[in-house]
Simulated scan of single mutants.
Amino acid sequence: MQAYEYKIVPAPRKGHKAKGVKGAEARFALALETVMNDFGAAGWDYMRTDILPVEERQGLTGRTTTFRHLLVFRRPLSPNGPEDTAAALPPSGAVDAPPEEASTGASGAQRISSDSA
């Protein structure tokens, strides 16, 4: 049975400016492409994008439900045990999300076993 390590990151909220990239859609596509290429270069395979509800505080006593777009990546665990995930992650500025949204623990990865290959 193959074991995998998963990394969940918030999708970019706004586009990146670059020379020759015009329009909001093209800038957003560039931001998403950059995040996906950075994680791919670090050995992570893109799985899917999920939209999940999050209940957040609004004011002193109110609560509201918002939806977050999350990118799901995975990579196989080595047979010798977990690798040093901090060394294999893209730079911390790869995703432009507030720290409370991007924090997923010390290594930023969740280990899960899976039957599928």
Results as ranks from 00 to 15, higher is better:
107 S>E: 15
106 A>P: 01
85 T>W: 14
6 Y>G: 03
3 A>Y: 00
77 L>E: 13
32 L>R: 03
33 E>H: 14
76 P>A: 11
11 A>N: 11
68 R>Q: 13
64 T>P: 00
55 E>V: 15
37 N>D: 11
82 P>R: 11
98 P>H: 14
109 A>Q: 09
67 F>N: 05
78 S>A: 12
19 K>S: 15
51 I>Y: 08
109 A>T: 15
80 N>G: 05
69 H>L: 00
40 G>N: 11
9 V>S: 02
95 V>R: 00
110 Q>F: 13
110 Q>D: 10
24 A>M: 06
68 R>Y: 10
52 L>P: 01
16 H>K: 15
54 V>G: 04
68 R>C: 06
117 A>H: 06
102 A>W: 10
77 L>K: 15
77 L>V: 15
51 I>S: 09
18 A>N: 07
84 D>F: 02
65 T>A: 04
79 P>A: 11
21 V>Q: 03
82 P>I: 04
59 G>W: 06
115 D>K: 04
103 S>K: 14
42 A>E: 11
6 Y>C: 03
51 I>N: 08
103 S>N: 15
100 E>R: 13
38 D>V: 04
29 A>E: 10
46 Y>M: 02
107 S>G: 13
82 P>S: 14
43 G>V: 01
46 Y>K: 00
73 F>N: 09
74 R>I: 02
17 K>E: 14
25 E>C: 07
75 R>Y: 04
36 M>H: 04
106 A>H: 13
91 P>M: 03
69 H>E: 05
25 E>D: 13
108 G>T: 06
59 G>Y: 05
38 D>T: 06
79 P>G: 07
63 R>Q: 05
76 P>T: 05
64 T>R: 14
110 Q>G: 14
83 E>P: 09
47 M>I: 08
69 H>W: 02
85 T>I: 09
89 L>N: 11
20 G>D: 09
62 G>C: 12
12 P>A: 11
32 L>I: 03
1 M>I: 06
64 T>G: 06
64 T>F: 00
28 F>R: 02
63 R>F: 05
23 G>R: 04
27 R>S: 07
104 T>W: 12
82 P>Q: 12
58 Q>G: 10
61 T>Y: 11
3 A>M: 05
91 P>R: 07
105 G>S: 08
41 A>W: 08
27 R>Y: 07
32 L>A: 04
66 T>G: 02
